[in-house]
Nucleic acid binder design. Structure first.
Lengths: 241, 241
DNA sequence: CGACAACTTGACGGGCGTCAACCGGAGTGG
DNA sequence: CCACTCCGGTTGACGCCCGTCAAGTTGTCG
């Protein structure tokens, strides 16, 4: 229901809710190349000059940076509807990498065209700016998550965020979903090791907070899970339910 | 040199470099209240409805969030010229708190007036949006910092960032400066404890990376410090030197 | 059926947290 | 002018959470 053949930008328009009709039309008229890539493909690499913006319309991706000792830190997970590198509208050098987690389809739009469009349509600029602000809010929450929560709370929090955004993107219930990422992805997102992620997922299961079957997750008691995760969805600033 | 009596917005205009003349004039005509507060004063509290934006013109501040166990995580330090809660232009509920570190002076501008101005001046909107994107980039670096670096590298990195931004704000050399924050602030920013921050600062001193006298810091060998800190200033996207 | 990636589990060690004591300087009041 | 207090900083002893290393299991794809 989110994307339809008539409009490649459907998922993005759905996420940037409350766009004017004219604005949607203008967005849909943007030049773009649609690409489908396998899992683990790089869309952006840190240090690269970037002249395009990518709109993720199907699949999952993540943004990450690496420390000089090789340690990798994922800074966000991305779902269908997310704009992956909006920053390249105004910042020319990529300060982080973007990689797919699953096979994925995205629209590659020239930054210049999108930028020109935002100058004509202030409400589009506002919607995109708002999206940037929400991104920033999520990053702040992640700083808190990796900085001040123990492994159990940290992973529970990550799962709650995924559940809520998953639902917001129209992909299904927050209480029953399938994770697209490996435990190594989870480790890199939470600042832990894969081994400890594995142990902690087991602990969450033993505590009755989640039930697992492979990567399928069921959260039986959402209230209790939210509490255990120290999760308050305010920071996601979700307008759509 | 940065701020002058003619223009309360001087520090902010200096930071948002490359604004058109008309745009600067428009900014300067914004209605505002100038306030001076002591150290540890709250400008914004998490959960609050926010109808104003604050432009820091003197002193130091930080943004932070708290975990339910009481743990506090600072997500950024702010210097003169920084806009403290630009997000309140487009997001009505504060998702984090802002508190001064030293006594500070700021301009309180009604969000509505600033928002109206951005709709008239697309280059102002662009400059502010760009500022938001840079903020987001810094948050991502902080996620990496607290998630994947050990205490020594982490604190060294924080010091490097402070040094560079300190200079960019026209406050002096990056190799010789006085920290405005306590070791507890540093602990809350790096996800460590004050005790361990203290020990690690000593280690940095013993390694000859920094020299300390109270909160005065001298970085003798900036190259070596940068390397020890895994610090690459790219993520700050600084245009001005 | 072999190869490989992801997951799982155990044993052990270390970096950082916790607890506690003490120091030094600034502010305050007698 | 000196006690008193308080905050920030400093240092030591000890313990735990999580990292490291290593081995084994499961599932999938060719």
């Amino acid at each position: 229901m989110i994307s339809n053949d008539d409009n490649a930008f459907g998922a993005v328009i759905a996420k940037l809710n409350a766009l004017s009709a004219g604005c949607k039309t203008a967005l849909s008229a943007l030049p773009f190349v649609r690409e489908t890539v396998p899992a683990d493909a790089h869309l952006v690499r840190e240090g690269q000059m970037a002249t395009h913006c990518c709109f993720l319309v199907y699949g999952f991706a993540c943004r990450y940076k690496v420390a000089h000792d090789g340690g990798r830190q994922i800074a966000s997970f991305n779902l269908a509807g997310d704009i992956l590198d909006l920053q390249h509208l105004l910042l020319s050098i990529a300060d982080h990498s973007v990689q797919t987690i699953t096979s994925a389809t995205y629209l590659r739009v020239p930054s210049a065209a999108l930028k020109a469009l935002t100058q004509e349509h202030t409400d589009l600029a506002e919607a995109l700016w708002r999206d940037t602000l929400i991104d920033a809010s999520i990053f702040r929450e992640w700083v808190l998550n990796v900085g001040r929560r123990d492994a159990r709370t940290r992973i529970a929090h990550m799962l709650c965020e995924f559940a809520v955004r998953h639902q917001a993107a129209g992909l299904g219930s927050p209480e029953r979903f399938t994770l697209p990422m490996t435990q190594e992805h989870i480790a890199d997102a939470t600042g832990l090791t894969p081994v400890h992620v594995n142990r902690t997922l087991r602990v969450l299961g033993e505590a009755g907070l989640i039930a697992r079957d492979g990567r399928k997750i069921v959260i039986a008691d959402w209230k209790r899970m939210q509490q255990a995760a120290d999760f308050d969805p305010l920071y996601i600033h979700a307008a759509a339910a």
